[in-house]
Design a protein around this nucleic acid. Sequence first.
DNA 1: ACCTCCTGTACGCTGTGCGTACTACTTGTA
DNA 2: TACAAGTAGTACGCACAGCGTACAGGAGGT
Lengths: 271, 271
Amino acid sequence: MAEGSERDVIASIERGFAVLLAFDADLPAPSLAEVATKTGLSRPAVRRILLTLQKLGYVNASGSRWSLTPRVLTIGQHYAASHAISEVAQPHLLRLAELTHESASLSQLDGTGVVYVARVHVRRVMSLNVDIGSRVPVHATSMGRVLVAWADASVIEQVIEDGLPALTPTTVTDPVAFRDALHEVRQQGFALVDGELEPGFLSAAAPVRNPAGDVVAALAYSTSRGRTDVQHVLDDVVPHLLDVAASIQRDLAVVTTGRRTLAPGARDGFF
Amino acid sequence: MAEGSERDVIASIERGFAVLLAFDADLPAPSLAEVATKTGLSRPAVRRILLTLQKLGYVNASGSRWSLTPRVLTIGQHYAASHAISEVAQPHLLRLAELTHESASLSQLDGTGVVYVARVHVRRVMSLNVDIGSRVPVHATSMGRVLVAWADASVIEQVIEDGLPALTPTTVTDPVAFRDALHEVRQQGFALVDGELEPGFLSAAAPVRNPAGDVVAALAYSTSRGRTDVQHVLDDVVPHLLDVAASIQRDLAVVTTGRRTLAPGARDGFF
DNA sequence: ACCTCCTGTACGCTGTGCGTACTACTTGTA
DNA sequence: TACAAGTAGTACGCACAGCGTACAGGAGGT
């Protein structure tokens, strides 16, 4: 059902996003020609697309260089506005951060990747710039393990098929070991990953379920090996983690089953 | 130059974004037909667009309801990756938040609106959900006043033409008074807005300039009238604000004029 | 049994958006 | 100075992408 043949895909829209996403750390302010070579599109096509995106306010030309405008940041707001979870979770993240004195985050599965949807950072932990919208690999993070552990079998297959690159010497890269790790996560009800994403980076995550019982998000605590150790996380942090995850789950159930109103007064007189 | 006639705008891309942005708090999980009526497009057209967006991973169908996926949050990452300012400003925002014990934020002008590009929130200040990517009205916020005060005259005209709605009883709504307020901002080098966006909400903002001297962002401090008063902000906060804004400006100059490398090691082994 | 909502599909026509080919400008180099 | 190599902008005609109309098939609801 709803398969959608090739006939039902609009190439221009794909091209439009290809151009929008061509703006990158590698190419922060490209010329038209650079975008064309990067995307493989013809220059006139890129020109038309850039002019369209400019009309929509997402890019701007200064001289012969093009760059993104802050408006691209507003696109994500539509996700937050249409999904209660990030808003519901916010106070709970704050509580977790206060309980543990470390950063707390909530993430969701996106294909075979993990995307942060809410976050409270206590201090600048790492070189990694993890903010809302950041993507992290699914196989080497506690959040990813949680999200995949309870996902459809097809997702697990796809993740393994995508490959399990070694990001540190201790990253689990063997498919069998990875499946074992997922099994362990299901058994114990949470995931703990120690230095598999980046040396010294330690994190734990717990599942957050919707009323139907599906795991829709992962709540995570993250810290550095320098500040704490695995035993402390297991003894003192995980109970808080599970407790806060349960609270989010409870609030989420209220919001989604009850009336879908998010502080009605908040929107009025604002925008 | 580079005007771009109507001939050079790709309607399909406009339609694609129209559908993507149709997902809203009002319509978090619409049916195909609902999207069609909201956007004014035909149902088959909307179907094609949704299938395209689904292929790109931005929307997903569950039953006959469609919803955004967390992937839309990643679009904004391309802005952060291609503009040093948000990353550069982050530690400074943290410092400002620590100095003042209140939320600190950085925002940029987008057309005639203001968009938060970086933020450190100290506590849950208000009902307002102000996060990265949020848009706030330009005329009733200290950040907006700063950004507009030093913008092209055409921007000021456009803001006034857009209208200056009264969001609280004290909002400046008279064009002449608004121009006076901007003049005052230019004179004193910062903006202070007291309860014009929401009663009891108090904020101050200072400009951040690029090496060419253009105001490219506004650094803001925000609090509630219940916790402090105008005099304290003027005496104790504004000096910090100006100081931190100068620091951001300095770091920004180094990054943009020097080599455009943002912690090269941070990207490797990450994604 | 009806009616009304929905989605999915077929199909032929229109005109959008494509690329090729060319012009015009700027910058660096011989 | 003149050429080369880069850039952006423009024109134009053709092809087919994507459009909407029209219809079929389900799922509730009365």
